[in-house]
Design a protein around this nucleic acid. Structure first.
Lengths: 267, 267
DNA sequence: CCTTGAATATCGGTG
DNA sequence: CACCGATGTTCAAGG
């Protein structure tokens, strides 16, 4: 990780510095520019951002993000695969970035610069994460009784006309059951989804009696009402954390265990 | 904008530096840490990220974001309102951040540091943006004929049982029309939405004949098929760019014009 | 406060 | 490449 920085650079110095490190293709650099700037974006939408002090990152994959002093989200950005140029005009550094598909471009004009930096970051790690929707689905496959005594899961990711059913099975009376799983709060839109799936299955199996269950850690009253109106059901299932609370296991141990617990589609 | 940096700091120096500037509440600082780190997150989900070189930002509102050398999205983060502490253990800098609602915490351990920096960014500007769904809705209100000859819009944001209808009106034959607007590609989920709305309105007005139109810049075949199956319609409406292509107008002129063009709900 | 839905959503998986 | 759905979605607006 080679790193260089210039504090309080002139526009010309910053321009030369950024250009040099941006073009070093052998060892891709991440660039940082901290200063007082104005941003003009045009593409899927159009936006203008007046003068203010921000941090601009130009990543090794062409991504550009402009961060204000608050908020998780960048105020402006360009997607991965964008190309960026630097130049000086009227003693102001201008950073231009463009992208082809979808067509969009962004211009950042700096009237003051506090810091420019570059670093050839090396990072082969990828995030290992647990507690996603797929994990909840796995859990239900392993232990269908958590939803209902005698429930038998027969298919995962079952395709129907209007989409993909998370889980499909039969209850103790052999009535088909469609299960839609959400890892966080159930939404009205999930009700629409479930209702469509149930109606698709009714046509598929030519059976009038098909149950639909929405599984989520929380189901708001509004959503419960809507479900009731459509003759659908719900289960509020507690999210289980797969990893231990504290970092007791090593990553490799965790990965091994996770692999073993990952359940493939059930035939 | 006061800025300080240390290049290649020791863990102890970085710790002292970050602590000092984090606590300067009078003039809130944004902090940057560039180095080789490991991230452990626990909250709405659980994740581990193995060693790698990343940039960590601690923003003035408590937001923490961890950026890998690629991708627009941070690999890990803490929401605004989080609290952060710094400490040294085994000659490694440890950054801990926690948040109450929802409960979540993150620990970043640095085994190598390339740069720490701090800056009291001042930015009062907020983004001015055009081309959102609301703009498309406005456009249709102003010019309903773009969808269909003789169409009359009567309500915007009309509430029905299962949600909110973007636009509601009557066609040339006085048949009620429900219009769902999407600023980008139409999805299956939008079809579900529209279908629910149409069925709600049928009940409301006790009329069997209610039309539903999905308006989007593009409607994939799958979605068209689904719409046809349900007797619904679609229009592919080109997105119009509100701002001129180049930055010819000043911000204030643009704002004035935008305000004039913004149309309130139609009674 | 909670709830709802948009977003320049982004991103990964699948066909 | 298009398309589809999840996201620790985030965020702002409205009740």
């Amino acid at each position: 990780m080679l790193t260089s920085t210039i504090v309080d650079p002139s526009a010309a110095d910053a321009n030369e510095f950024l250009e040099k490190h941006y073009k070093s293709k052998a060892d891709k650099q991440m660039l940082l520019v901290l200063g007082d700037c104005l941003v003009d974006y045009q593409g899927r939408a159009r936006s203008l951002l007046d003068w203010g002090e921000r941090l601009v990152l130009i990543k090794q994959d062409g991504t550009v993000i402009v961060h204000q002093p608050v908020m998780r989200e960048p105020v402006n950005w360009q997607p991965a695969g964008s190309n960026t140029t630097f130049r000086v005009h009227d003693n102001q550094l201008i950073v231009r970035s463009w992208h082809n598909k979808p067509p969009e471009k962004m211009a950042i004009t700096f009237r003051g610069l506090k810091l420019v930096a570059t670093s050839s970051l090396k990072d082969r790690a990828s995030l290992v994460i647990a507690g996603m929707e797929a994990d909840v689905v796995n859990q239900i496959i392993c232990e269908p009784d958590m939803l209902e005594e005698g429930l038998r899961i027969s298919k995962r990711e079952k395709p129907v006309k209007s989409g993909m059913i998370d889980l499909f099975g039969y209850d103790v009376d052999h009535t088909p059951v469609v299960i839609e799983v959400k890892r966080s709060i159930a939404t009205i839109s999930a009700v629409h989804q479930l209702r469509m799936y149930v109606s698709d299955v009714k046509k598929d199996v030519k059976e009038a009696n098909v149950r639909g269950i929405l599984c989520a850690p929380r189901v708001p009253d509004m959503v419960k009402n809507l479900l009731s109106d459509y003759g659908l059901e719900w289960r509020e299932v507690a999210r289980t954390v797969v990893l231990p609370d504290d970092h007791q296991k090593t990553l490799s141990e965790f990965l091994k265990e996770k692999k073993m617990c990952t359940i493939e589609s059930v035939a």
